[in-house]
Design a protein around this nucleic acid. Structure first.
Lengths: 129, 129
DNA sequence: GTGCGTGCAAACCGTTTGCAATCGG
DNA sequence: CCGATTGCAAACGGTTTGCACGCAC
C-alpha cells in the first residue's frame, strides 16, 4: 500500500469539494479550486478526485448525462437530474433495487445482479422559466 | 420541414444498422458500415444516426457507460448492461416507472417527472471466464 | 441548376498520461 | 535523500462542425 502525502493541493481540493453541495463534476471542482489557488493543474484535480473515489472517501456518480459527478455522501442513495441544466440533487426515497434486479433475472442469458435508478425532472431554478 | 434525400449512404447505414442486434454505438455502426462501403465518413454515420433518432426511427440510449447506443426498437423498454464487456441487451420486464417517480416527488424543489432504470449484470459470454 | 448531403480535417470537451521538476516525510 | 506528487503539454476517444465539392432531385 502506497504511503500518501499530505500536500497543499490535496488539502485545498478536499476543502473546496466539501464546501460544494451540488454534486460537482471534476471540472466544476477545478474551477472552484482555481479561485483559491489559481496555480493548480486540472490534472491534479482529476487525480485527487479519482484517488478519493478509489479510497471510498467520495462517491463517483455515473449518471446518464456525460460527465461523472462526485458526491460527499458515500452511502447508497438516489439522485435526480434536471433535464434543463443538469443540476443534481439527492433523493432520499426507498427503491426496491434488489427486487427490481430479481424480477429481471434470467433474461438473455445475463446474470443480472443490480440496477441503476436515476430520477429526471426540473430543478427549482429552471421551473421559473 | 426539410425535404430529405434518399442517398446511398443513408440506405447503407440503415441496412447495416438494422442487421445488427447488439444496440451498437455510432462507432460500432461506423465500423460495420466500413466493411461494405469503406469510403464512408465517420461524420456521415454520426449525422445519419442522429437524424434517425430525431425522427423517431431509432431510439438513442443514454446509458451509464460513456457512449450512446442506438436501438431499433423505439417503444419504451429496459436494458441490461454487462459490467465486463459493456454488451447491452433488452429486458422485457415491467417496471413501475411512474410509481417510482411519484414516490420521489417533492424532493429538493425538483419537479420529478420520470426516471431511468438500467440493469447491471454479466453477459453469457463473460460468465464463462 | 439548386441546395441538401457528403467527405475531410480540424475543433471540441472531458479526461488521461508521460515526463521532468519539486516538495513532503 | 528519495520517491510520491505536481504541472505542463500532448494525447486520447467519442463526437461535432466549417467548408468546399458533388450528387439527388
Amino acid at each position: 500500500m502506497k504511503n500518501k502525502r499530505n500536500t497543499l493541493q490535496k488539502r485545498i481540493v478536499s476543502d473546496v469539494f466539501c464546501s460544494m453541495n451540488n454534486h460537482p463534476s471534476a471540472t466544476m471542482v477545478y474551477e472552484a479550486v482555481c479561485e483559491k489557488y489559481p496555480g493548480i493543474s486540472k490534472a491534479t484535480v482529476y487525480r485527487l478526485l479519482a484517488e478519493a473515489a478509489e479510497e471510498g472517501k467520495v462517491q463517483r456518480l455515473k449518471l446518464t448525462e456525460a460527465d461523472d459527478r462526485f458526491d460527499i455522501t458515500t452511502k447508497k442513495h438516489y439522485h435526480v437530474v434536471c433535464r434543463e441544466c443538469g443540476a443534481v440533487a439527492d433523493v432520499d426515497v426507498e427503491v426496491d433495487d434488489a427486487g427490481l434486479a430479481n424480477s429481471a433475472v434470467g433474461h438473455q442469458g445475463f446474470a443480472i445482479d443490480g440496477c441503476h435508478v436515476e430520477f429526471i425532472g426540473i430543478c427549482e431554478g429552471c421551473q421559473k422559466n
